[in-house]
Amino acid sequence: METLTKNKILIVEGEDEKRFFKEFLIFLGIYDVQILKYDGKNNLKNKLKVWIRDSNFKNIIAFGIIIDADNNPYTTFQSVCDILKNVGLNSPQEMYIFSEGIPKIGIYVMPGNFKEGMLEDLCLKTVKDNPLISCVDDLIECANKLYKEGKVKEFFGKYDYFKSRRFYRNNFLNSNGKIKNIAKARALAYLSIMPEIVNSVGIGAEKGYWNFESEELNELRKFLENFR
């Protein structure tokens, strides 16, 4: 478990988020924020309990939490507020807005603007005008069509090897299968056709593949300015 070394803390879900926000903070010229990861929503409460027991927590002046909305930004926000109250911290009244007092605490629910989704959705919004996105969308549309028509299942079902694998049992026994996470699929497809291929949105941020000048990041930029 990492110890607290700075008086401004941003906690994020995983390694991708840590890489992305490190690069974005550098782009904004904000260098004095420590980024910690809680490694999945289910671990947030336990990680917070450990961090607030750190002897340096009393020095924290700004504390931000980044979390994916997934299917519902409002219930996600409320669940984080409940966790904060459970560990003895004040929660903000609204998502994207920091609370008063010390430490001031803010919750940013991605992709922002009270929308469903995740980091990958936010990244893709920043390059929505890149002509390569149309290629990515053509791929996803084609794949969805093939799943719906049962042609993907038909291919895997021809071979005993595939039928013996767990992925086949989980995805094809009772259905034609589907792309389970469209945002991740689109993001990875986009990254796979870059001049230098990478396999995660965080490394994509380090490479400069997401547009940090995009207006789609204005709300996030405003949130992070609280750390300046």
Rank of each mutant, 00 (worst) to 15 (best):
E94L: 14
M95H: 03
I97G: 00
I97A: 05
F98P: 08
S99N: 12
E100H: 15
E100L: 15
E100D: 15
G101C: 14
G101R: 08
I102T: 13
I102V: 15
K104E: 09
G106I: 08
G106Y: 02
I107Q: 01
I107N: 03
M110V: 09
P111K: 07
G112M: 01
G117P: 07
M118E: 08
L122W: 00
C123Y: 00
L124P: 00
L124D: 01
K125Q: 13
K125S: 14
K125Y: 11
T126S: 11
V127P: 03
V127H: 00
K128R: 12
D129H: 06
D129A: 11
D129Y: 09
L132N: 14
I133R: 01
I133C: 06
S134Q: 12
V136C: 09
V136K: 03
V136L: 04
L139H: 02
E141A: 14
C142F: 13
C142Y: 13
A143S: 09
A143R: 05
A143N: 01
A143W: 02
N144A: 12
K145R: 13
K148M: 10
E149N: 09
G150Y: 04
G150C: 06
E154V: 04
E154P: 00
F155A: 14
F156K: 10
F156P: 12
G157D: 15
K158C: 14
Y161W: 12
Y161N: 06
Y161K: 09
Y161H: 04
F162Q: 03
F162M: 06
F162S: 10
S164L: 07
R165K: 15
R165G: 09
F167S: 13
R169G: 15
N170F: 04
N171G: 08
N171M: 06
F172Q: 11
L173Q: 14
L173H: 08
S175A: 15
N176V: 09
N176S: 10
N176M: 07
G177R: 06
G177Q: 07
K178P: 05
I179K: 03
N181E: 11
N181K: 11
N181A: 09
N181D: 14
I182C: 01
I182P: 02
R186D: 01
R186W: 00
A189C: 10
Y190P: 06
L191G: 07
L191T: 10
S192W: 02
I193V: 11
M194V: 09
M194T: 12
P195R: 10
I197Q: 10
I197N: 05
V198N: 04
N199T: 13
S200V: 08
S200T: 14
S200Y: 04
G202R: 02
G202Y: 03
G204V: 05
A205H: 01
A205W: 00
E206C: 14
K207Y: 10
K207D: 07
G208M: 04
G208F: 04
